[in-house]
C-alpha cells in the first residue's frame, strides 16, 4: 500500500474525536528518548550483564555495543538534521567546532594537569545560549573534528561523542534566570558536575576489561548492588582525583570567561535568528 505522508497524516487525523496531534513531534521525541535510553544502556552494560554470568564474551560485547552506539548516533544525527538547519546555523556551528577543536589540540599539546580539558566550557555555554539541539551537535561534532585533526580516531570515539553531546544537550535544558550572577554560578556548578560525570560515564565501557583487585573489578554474575559498589570503589580509587582537576578546571574557566562569552553569543544569536517576513 503506497500511502504518502500527507495522506497518512490526514488519515490519522480524520476521525472527529481524534485530537489534533503533531505526529512528527511525538515521533521525534520518541527517537530522542529511545536514543538516550540506548546510549545509557550501552554505557551501563556492565550492570546489565549479571544475568549472563560466565557466558560473557568481552570482545564480542564491546564490538556489538560500540556498533549499536554508532548506529544510534547516526539515527540521532539524521533526526536532528531533519529539522530545519539554516545556512547561518551551519556556518556558526562550523566555526564554533573549529574553535573547540583547536582547544582540544591545545589540551593535547600542552601538559595540562589531570582530566582538565578546555573544550567543555565552550560547549556548555554555547548549548545554554543556542539551545539543546545546537549544544548536542556542537558536542558531537567537536569531538569528531578534533579526533580527525589530532589523530584521535579510535573505538573510544563514539562513546566520547555521545557523552560530549549529552553535555551540550543538557546545558540547553537549563533555566534562564534574569540575574547574570545566578546564570554564571549555575553554569559553573553545571561544569563542575559534568567534570565528574564525564569521567564516571566514560570509565564504564572499559571497566569490565579492567583486571585488578577483586574489590574494584567487574565480576560476572554479581547482583546490581555489588556491581554498583565495586564500580563506585573503582571510581574513587582510580579516577576521582583525575576528574576533580577536570571539574575544578571547568568551574574556573566558566567563572573567568563565562560572562563575556555569554554576552557575545547572545548578541550573535539574535543575528542568526533574523528572518525576513514575507509581504502580504
Amino acid at each position: 500500500m503506497n500511502i504518502t505522508n500527507a495522506r497518512l497524516s490526514t488519515y490519522l487525523r480524520s476521525p472527529v474525536w481524534w485530537p489534533q496531534i503533531n505526529w512528527g513531534r511525538w515521533l521525534s521525541a520518541g527517537i530522542y528518548g529511545l536514543s538516550g535510553l540506548i546510549g545509557a544502556a550501552a554505557f551501563a552494560y556492565p550492570f546489565l550483564l549479571r544475568l549472563r554470568g560466565e557466558g560473557f564474551n568481552s570482545g564480542l560485547t564491546l564490538v556489538l555495543t560500540t556498533g549499536l552506539l554508532m548506529l544510534c548516533l547516526l539515527v540521532l544525527l539524521l533526526e536532528v538534521q531533519g529539522q530545519v538547519i539554516s545556512a547561518k546555523v551551519v556556518a556558526a556551528l562550523g566555526l564554533l567546532v573549529a574553535v573547540t577543536a583547536i582547544l582540544r589540540f591545545v589540551d593535547n599539546a600542552l601538559p595540562i594537569p589531570g582530566g582538565f580539558s578546555p573544550i567543555f566550557a565552550p560547549i556548555i555555554i554555547a548549548g545554554y545560549v543556542f539551545g539543546a539541539r545546537f549544544g548536542f551537535l556542537l558536542g558531537v561534532l567537536s569531538l569528531l573534528v578534533s579526533a580527525f585533526v589530532t589523530g584521535g580516531v579510535g573505538p573510544w570515539l563514539p562513546y566520547q561523542m555521545f557523552t560530549t553531546g549529552w553535555v551540550g544537550l543538557t546545558a540547553g535544558w537549563l533555566p534562564h534566570p534574569a540575574r547574570p550572577r545566578i546564570t554564571l554560578s549555575m553554569l559553573a556548578l553545571f561544569g563542575l558536575i559534568w567534570g565528574f560525570l564525564f569521567g564516571a560515564i566514560m570509565n564504564l565501557y572499559s571497566w569490565p576489561f579492567w583486571v585488578g583487585d577483586a574489590a574494584l573489578s567487574w565480576l560476572p554474575g554479581s547482583d546490581l548492588r555489588t556491581t554498583l559498589h565495586h564500580y563506585l570503589t573503582f571510581y574513587l580509587v582510580t579516577s576521582l582525583w583525575w576528574d576533580l582537576i577536570g571539574a575544578v578546571g571547568n568551574l574556573t574557566l566558566i567563572l573567568v570567561l563565562g560572562q563575556p562569552t555569554i554576552h557575545a553569543l547572545e548578541r550573535f544569536r539574535q543575528r542568526f535568528h533574523f528572518v525576513q517576513q514575507r509581504q502580504g
Binding site: 505522508n5 497524516s9 512528527g24 527517537i31 546489565l48 549499536l68 548506529l71 533526526e79 531533519g82
Partner: peptide, 28 residues
C-alpha cells in the same frame, strides 16, 4: 524536505528492534 513521518516511524521501529536484539544477546 518535509519532515517524513514514515521515516521517523521506521527509524523508531529499527532502533527498538536493534536495542531489543542487543539486550537479548546480552542475556544469552
Amino acid at each position: 524536505q518535509p519532515h517524513s513521518t514514515r521515516r521517523q516511524m521506521g527509524m523508531l521501529v529499527g532502533l527498538a528492534a536493534a536495542f531489543l536484539g542487543w539486550l537479548l544477546i546480552l542475556v544469552g
